[in-house]
Design a binder for these strands. Sequence first.
DNA 1: CTGAAAGCGCTTACAG
DNA 2: CTGAAAGCGCTTACAG
Lengths: 322, 322
Amino acid sequence: MATIYDVARLAGVSPATVSRVFNGTTVTPENERVVRDAAARLEFVPNRTARTLRRRNSDIIALVIPDIENPYFTALARGVEDEARAAGYSVVLCNTDGDVTRESDYLEVAVSEHMAGVIIAAASDQSDLSPLLSRQKAVVAVDRVPHGAAIDAVTIDNAVGAELATRLLVERGYERIACIAGPDDVETSVARISGWRDALSRAGLRADHDLLEHADYRVEGGSAAMARLLGRTDPPDAVFVANNLMSVGALRVLRDAGIHPPEIGVASFGALPFSTSAPTGVSMVSLPARELGASAARMLLARIRGDRQAPRTLVLEATAID
Amino acid sequence: MATIYDVARLAGVSPATVSRVFNGTTVTPENERVVRDAAARLEFVPNRTARTLRRRNSDIIALVIPDIENPYFTALARGVEDEARAAGYSVVLCNTDGDVTRESDYLEVAVSEHMAGVIIAAASDQSDLSPLLSRQKAVVAVDRVPHGAAIDAVTIDNAVGAELATRLLVERGYERIACIAGPDDVETSVARISGWRDALSRAGLRADHDLLEHADYRVEGGSAAMARLLGRTDPPDAVFVANNLMSVGALRVLRDAGIHPPEIGVASFGALPFSTSAPTGVSMVSLPARELGASAARMLLARIRGDRQAPRTLVLEATAID
DNA sequence: CTGAAAGCGCTTACAG
DNA sequence: CTGAAAGCGCTTACAG
């Protein structure tokens, strides 16, 4: 692969001048021309590794997400990409599969590759961002903020959204409203449970402990939890499901059992992805996933550009679709 | 950030010894211990940028896909990740959004970051892989192979799968079977159209030119194409839809028009993602997305390890779900 | 097994 | 505006 030295020799200038051409600094038009010609002739591509080593930072942003198969996170990724690319950054996605070990591997990659910044939807409340923070890397939490992390964040108002969703069930007259929650080490799940509880207590309904099922924020978890609820001696008459994928799983179990909403009430936190049937009897709150990503990217870009304000949290709202 | 020199000083050894500890070469147990202690004390993280510059290759694999919002590609990504990670590589995802300019930006990043290899589902038949090939970068095409590229590839038998899907409609007795195809500059779309034609001609049915609609492999494209078909003076009695997302779009339009399969026949190339209703009257062929990714990763890893065989193409089969 | 030293390909402060 | 030179943080052939 051609280097700056090869280009310099062919163009009859110094390597410094070649470098300047590719970095937009002061060069005479004539030199600019000969350098670009030589570079084209040699198919020269600047070695970013060398540049990053020298400059101590690259123009790549890492987006770390827990589940690449969840359309919510891919929509969020699109939001990040659109903003970041407009500002001249490339974004690479890292999928942790909800595993804190994989996650810290990727954080180490981001640090040791001197990436410009990191946007992270943490695998768990216990996720350790210290490798980033201790090196003052620009970082924004999105969707979820690990416990105690004093950093920029863009989140959804999970408690309010969950209450909203649950209230839709209350208003339809359901009285034994169960909850299929996410992993208990994920912040968003805890908040959604409390929203569910609030809606019930305001309606004078009981949030019995046995109406709460924990699952994994995935399709299979939703199925399993729904199956457990149906197996109860005293099953619920409705269920609030704490994320989009678990709603898919729950609805599949209901379909297979021949139970069709509104025979049982279902409210989903997050719209059903790629649905093709008007899901009668299914209430949903919709999440601004793309906007979440775009906002996170804007905050990160500000930090990369040197913003030194105290960390801020932007909270976006979920909206009801009934 | 601590460097190898800081660690060496604290441990009382040379930088070379520190390097050797982190690269698994011969060091005395005693030295190994003091070095690791010192490294831990300093929170030392090896600088991959420097290592990559020196070694001229990294342990990151790039996976370049055209649509991160398509569950088919995210499932494929999971397949790649599982294999690559097991072999000690990190994989980063690059979303081109079907745009060849974005794609070539990412290929340049992969080259100039000296990534270990690239797995690519090309944005178009015109995608230019020469930046990779001229530098002998390990590369495997997946799902789609750009025109004339003599490289390793893992694909689906699109023509056979499309014929299979269309035949399901024929067997159900439909006679005017339209096709909603993908972009005409994408190889897979061309092959699926020919599969559709073959099924019709074998059944003695006409594949009239006006039964063919081109769209964009996205939900919106499927909706628009279906709407156009319904608007015809002589609409089809069935439709073969060339990918999963367009099927979602087409079914939404049918739902909104109050037309329910099997009143009109629908066959989808690729299973409907996250479906919750048993889609009565909708035939599907299912694609081994994850296996596609896993196979591509295995081929890439073999190349990275120095395999010098002539390029091979592995073709996987679609299977009917009726 | 270990260390001194060269070199990977850039960028940039410095001097002119 | 331009060039010579140092240096970013590693790895590794070479000598011992």
